[in-house]
Simulated scan of single mutants.
Amino acid sequence: MTDPAYQRLGLPVTASPFTVLRAAVRALHPDTRAVRGFRAARKRFYQQMLCAHAARQAAGDEPSG
């Protein structure tokens, strides 16, 4: 099952990790990005988006035959 937050990024399977990270940063509200106390939560969110993308790429790389 894919993370709904990752699905909202709307990225193709071929997107690079840097593209995923940029999309995840843009997905957060500027006020959320500005709060220092949320730093650990933001880092977890970015890591979850990267992991979801890697899992999607791994699932897409499997042979379908």
Rank of each mutant, 00 (worst) to 15 (best):
R33D: 02
P17M: 01
G37P: 01
K43D: 13
A59P: 08
P30Y: 09
R44T: 07
R39P: 01
R33Q: 09
Q47H: 13
L28S: 08
Q57H: 12
Y6H: 08
P4A: 06
L21K: 10
P4D: 06
L28Y: 12
V35Y: 03
R42I: 07
K43P: 00
M49S: 03
R36M: 12
L50T: 04
V13K: 10
L21S: 05
L9C: 04
L21H: 10
G10Y: 11
R22F: 04
A5C: 12
G10Q: 08
V25E: 13
M1G: 00
D31S: 10
A15H: 03
A54L: 06
A59K: 13
M49F: 10
A52V: 06
A59Y: 14
G10S: 07
G65P: 12
F45Y: 15
Q57Y: 07
V20G: 00
H29A: 15
F38K: 00
R42H: 09
V13A: 10
D3K: 03
T19D: 12
Y46L: 11
T32N: 11
T32R: 14
V25P: 00
A58F: 12
A27H: 09
V35W: 01
A59M: 13
G10A: 09
E62L: 15
A27R: 09
D61G: 14
R44D: 08
S16M: 03
P4N: 04
L9A: 03
P4R: 04
R36K: 15
Y6I: 02
T14D: 03
Q48N: 15
R39W: 05
A54H: 02
R22L: 07
E62H: 13
R39K: 11
T19K: 06
F38T: 02
A23Y: 04
A59L: 15
S16Q: 08
F38M: 03
G60F: 13
A58P: 04
T2V: 08
A40Q: 07
A40H: 04
T2H: 03
F38V: 00
R33N: 06
D3A: 04
P12F: 12
D61T: 11
K43N: 13
F38D: 02
T14Q: 04
L11S: 01
R44M: 09
A34Y: 00
A34W: 02
V20W: 03
A52M: 03
P30G: 04
S64C: 13
R26T: 01
P4L: 04
G10D: 09
L11D: 02
S64H: 14
R22D: 06
V25G: 06
R56K: 14
R42Y: 02
L28E: 11
T32A: 12
F18I: 09
T14K: 03
R26A: 09
V20P: 01
A24F: 06
G10I: 11
L28T: 06
P17A: 07
D31C: 11
G60Q: 14
R33A: 04
L21C: 02
T32V: 14
A27F: 08
K43M: 10
Q7I: 07
T19P: 00
A52T: 06
G65N: 13
L21M: 14
A15L: 01
Y6D: 00
H53V: 02
D31H: 13
P17R: 05
R36L: 11
D3F: 02
P12L: 05
Y46N: 06
F18T: 15
A55V: 09
Q48T: 15
